[in-house]
């Protein structure tokens, strides 16, 4: 799993801006960041490095998708 969880978000949106691959979005209702497209995380840690309250957890595991099915 690449980006694993966001816990204790204060809603500053920095991680959303920092993510080069649009993995994180803001929930308009809660005002907090959430992981929207985990599969596109490149584990670059820019979100974590930009987070002022260290709310983001990442792990180094990720596999490239095998093309075992069509479409």
């Amino acid at each position: 799993m690449p980006i694993e969880k966001i816990h204790g978000c204060i809603g500053c949106e920095k991680c959303v801006q920092a993510c080069p691959t649009d993995v994180i979005r803001m929930n308009p209702e809660s005002g907090q960041a959430f992981i929207a497209y985990q599969q596109d995380c490149q584990i670059c840690h820019l979100c974590r490095l930009s987070c002022p309250v260290d709310a983001i957890t990442l792990t180094p595991d990720k596999a490239m998708l095998p093309t075992t099915s069509w479409g």
């Binding site: 584990i43 670059c44 990442l58 180094p60 990720k62």
Partner: peptide
Amino acid sequence: AFAPAAAYE
């Protein structure tokens, strides 16, 4: 090989 997809690692 330890974590090939993890640039940062």
